[in-house]
Design a protein around this nucleic acid. Structure first.
Lengths: 336, 336
DNA sequence: TTGAAAGCGCTAACAA
DNA sequence: TTGTTAGCGCTTTCAA
């Protein structure tokens, strides 16, 4: 009973040719009813299943899609994968996941590895390092080979391919607008360094909201964090300079701000309103529950998979950029 | 420049046979220095890479490992995947991930799909449904086919294969012991329904700790939650009956208890000590920060991948169960 | 030193 | 109605 049974085994056993078996299993009218039944019964008995690898080689398509993301222990990326997986599975594709672990080199290696026949197309979110270097030769190579690629979240505008993003700028704009609406006058921003595309865009949204409301931009109220390990030390001074509102570009920064406020005896939301980005576990279980900009990772994943599969199966040449809407989820960390 | 170049292309271009090209690229001494150099230069120029699928078919191994987990939007499973991926990558394997989404049927379908040649071995954590049904025919089938399988976390003792678990019972025991040490007299348990193996084991640890310390077990202090959506309603009564300690078998339940306590004006840790399970994001950012039993998902993933790869490459017949140690991480949600 | 041929498992055009 | 053959891309034995 060891090992899988092949057409060859069946053909030998039943004393017919391999192609007869192949056709019989497909219920081809070329084959007599009798033979068909005999073969099918035998195949069923021994639980025959065609070998995926052989089919891939024959058909020159693997029915696998490759996903490369910077990290997986991250609520947002996990939801994206869930979305991709669901959509892919529904169309008969499997998902091969590689982690670039925020390393440019790993991103390149993983792409090369997968590009050598293992998959039919890529879904990818760039590492910070790649965004900083602006070195996209590996993406271009893959595209030139004719392999479809969909970029999401951390993208590069200059790459000719499909993209799925959220409107980071608008999400941030809405959040800061909300802070202004509930009466905040002095609003701090906790962001990432600028080379991370989403951080940069959210920062722009913050600035636009201030400008539109005729609030002067104060650079002292803008904290850009490179190293998450030192987030606390960088955020503390911000809370000490009398802000009454804080917009953070991710959940962790928002939570750090909330916890620091607790320590300093600053009351949320009466003295300080806080809004985060990404509607993950942290936001829901925070106390007070965090008002946040939700980015629907699940939908992003679904859209990305859908676009990719369409490209794989249709080979069109027009590239689209799909913008998934954000939504401000108002909870208890903002006044009113 | 479209499409990948193959040995055939090279052989045609250089007017030598395919096998000569193959050997030359491997620097075989069979081939003259001159030919080798010519072929290698050409291959480099056109960026030749052997086709993974063809290699898989030829070698009858794919260098892929299949991972099936109940969900991915879950810190613990995400860390396990990270561990698997790291270890697998280091040995030249890729990771194909399928989500069973807690559905027995999806688990079966995914296994069958992957078992048909796509991977060299499985790493799997059972769905709740599978654990409830105790129907393991799909696992047995795969094992009978000669495909290695490693089970982790949610396992079934009766399956003959390698396993990686944590000592759930001891982890729970230690946690409850800690509560007793800091002076808790009336300790509640928030657990899952019993058919989930880890929930059952953690419940046992709770019971053992009470018994060992001569504390009478009070069934009213034990809450078993089936549906996470109604966790709050089920936990609230527990807090109303005067407990001074609570042990929850996961982070979410612990956080729900903490937040309910806040609402009810119960002070943590002075009036109520809380300990959770799994050292994830929630525990770290909770206020007060949550004392918790850490289960090192990363290590679990690494061990699982290591065991699987060994089985793939060595074909030994002895099955091991590796127990990864838990550790009590004491933070601010427990007295003293 | 090179190449022909077989084979991994499957499909499909064509021949018998 | 069935079988032969070629081919997907590669490796490897054996013959030239």
């Amino acid at each position: 009973m060891k090992g899988k049974i092949t057409l060859k085994h069946i053909s030998k056993e039943l004393d017919v040719s391999i192609s007869t078996v192949s056709k019989a299993l497909k219920d081809s009218p070329e084959i007599s009813q009798e033979t068909r039944e005999k073969v099918q019964a035998f195949a069923k008995l021994y639980n025959y299943r065609p070998n995926n690898i052989a089919l891939s080689l024959k058909n020159r398509k693997t029915k696998n899609i490759g996903v490369i993301i910077p990290e997986i222990v991250h609520h947002f990326f996990a939801t994206v994968i869930e979305g991709i997986e669901q959509e892919a599975n529904a169309s008969g594709y499997n998902v091969i996941i590689c982690l670039s672990s925020e390393s440019f080199d790993k991103e390149v290696i993983n792409m090369e590895m997968l590009a050598n026949g293992s998959i039919d197309g890529f879904i990818l979110s760039l590492t910070k390092e790649t965004q900083m270097k602006k070195d996209y030769h590996h993406l271009v190579e893959v595209i030139n080979q004719g392999m479809p690629l969909v970029l999401f979240d951390r993208i590069a505008d200059e790459i000719p391919c499909d993209k799925v993003v959220i409107d980071d700028e608008k999400g941030a704009f809405d959040a800061v607008n909300k802070l202004i609406e509930v009466g905040c006058k002095k609003i701090g921003l906790i962001s990432t360094v600028d080379y991370v595309s989403v951080g940069r865009l959210r920062t722009q949204g913050y600035l636009k909201a201030l400008i539109k409301n005729n609030i002067e931009v104060d650079q002292n109220l803008i904290v850009k964090i490179e190293d998450v390990a030192h987030a606390s030390e960088m955020i503390a001074p911000l809370l000490d300079c009398g802000v009454d509102g804080v917009f953070a570009v991710n959940e962790a920064f928002a939570m750090t701000a909330i916890n620091l406020a607790h320590e300093k005896g600053i009351k949320i939301p009466s003295q300080l309103s806080v809004i985060g980005f990404t509607d993950g576990e942290l936001s829901k279980y925070a106390s007070p529950a965090l008002t946040t900009v939700s980015q629907n990772g699940h939908q992003i994943g679904q859209e990305a998979a859908r676009m990719l599969i369409e490209k794989i199966e249709e080979e069109s040449e027009v590239f689209q950029t799909k913008v998934v809407k954000t939504k401000l989820i108002v909870r208890k960390s903002t006044k009113n």
